[in-house]
């Protein structure tokens, strides 16, 4: 079974709504990076819906971190929303809820 991934995008008034469906892991890291780059280039703000993330590892986490920094560098915003439990777990472990917690993150552990 190949690692599954689907990146859905919806553009709305300069806001790009992305949804990552599947594994946010090293196996898909190249593909996700390219998707993020593409949408970041074409939109002012990007909102990434992590609700469909079934698995996440450090490579995935690192991508989220890099995308967020990239947005800031370009004067754009990158936001993560609707974190799935798998995504939350990693973000929690890495103590990064403050950075990734927009708009409102409810920790899975609470």
């Amino acid at each position: 079974m190949e690692a599954t991934l689907r990146i859905g995008a919806r553009h709305d008034n300069g806001l790009c709504k992305l949804r990552i469906e599947g594994e946010l892991t090293i196996y898909n890291a190249l593909q996700i990076r390219d998707g993020l780059l593409e949408h970041l280039a074409s939109s002012q703000d990007v909102e990434v819906d992590l609700g469909g993330v079934s698995e996440m590892d450090t490579a995935g986490f690192q991508l989220l971190l890099a995308a967020k920094r990239e947005g800031a560098r370009l004067g754009k915003t990158v936001r993560y929303v609707s974190h799935s439990p798998a995504a939350l777990e990693v973000i929690d472990l890495y103590n990064m809820a403050a950075q990734f917690g927009d708009p409102l993150l409810i920790s899975a552990r609470q």
Partner: peptide
């Protein structure tokens, strides 16, 4: 007790090797 990540080595999204670890 606490864990802090240093991402100062992390290159830009485009320059990075997404399969490499920079943390």
């Amino acid at each position: 007790v606490s864990l802090a990540i240093d991402d100062s080595e992390l290159p830009g999204l485009e320059e990075m090797d997404p399969e490499a670890c920079y943390l």
